[in-house]
Write a protein that binds this DNA or RNA. Structure first.
Lengths: 114, 114
DNA sequence: TTGCAATATATAATCTTCTTATATATTTAA
DNA sequence: TTAAATATATAAGAAGATTATATATTGCAA
């Protein structure tokens, strides 16, 4: 990740959202897409990404298919049925979280009852 | 913290922002204010909050004044000059981070050039 | 033809950060 | 008199990230 510790905790949701959006993706592609969507501001590290992908697979949220492309292995990840409902929940959580942060960052001026 | 792992990494920024907004605050007050601003969605834990406050003090970002209120010690924290510029940076980072997350959560449909 | 950048996945060691549990102590309301 | 609210603090452990390292192919430039 780049320049900020803020991303901690949101990686899983980000990955799941991209898979929901794109059907299936391989690890390298996911990091590319995140850079693209964030104008290079967020760069996923593989040391974080692959363990997360493996964990989600073990939890039955993702399934994999290996394919050969130009003699390079690509491991495609896609959501299971369970995965689809998990994404929906995670996205809701994230929206509420973002709202909460915004209430802190741009607070309504307090009424002078204090 | 409540119900979501999303908050990881943003605690420091949240604390600093509140101090910028309110002049000086004590630990307990900070947790109250965060609950208030987020409608109870984010509850800071003291096990996370106090170590962060102490760390920020050691870094010269905060200073403390102890006061006695109803036989209870209150330790007020406020920003140093350095602290004020640190908040400004952190807030900028957080705004960009939130923007980035929103680009991922609500992506513009991709033009079919891929 | 050699070497570097890009493509592609993976794991171990380490660090940071958070949660949970525990401790202490006063005031206030039931 | 007892529990909830107020107030701070730290240790142990878990979770999640970074950094470093490993391996291997393709394609482009020098």
């Amino acid at each position: 990740m780049i320049q900020t510790d803020l991303i901690k905790g949101s990686l899983k949701t980000v990955v799941l959202k991209l898979l929901q959006e794109n059907g299936r993706m391989y690890g390298y592609e996911i990091t590319r897409r995140v850079e693209e969507l964030t104008s290079g501001r967020i760069k996923l590290t593989y040391g974080a990404l692959y363990p997360v992908l493996h964990k989600l697979e073990n939890e039955g949220v993702l399934v994999t298919e290996s394919e050969n492309f130009n003699n390079r292995i690509r491991i495609y990840y896609s959501l299971t049925d369970k995965g689809h409902s998990v994404v929906a929940e995670k996205i809701e959580e994230m929206k509420i979280f973002i709202e909460s942060l915004q209430n802190i960052i741009n607070p309504q001026p307090r009424l002078t009852n204090a």
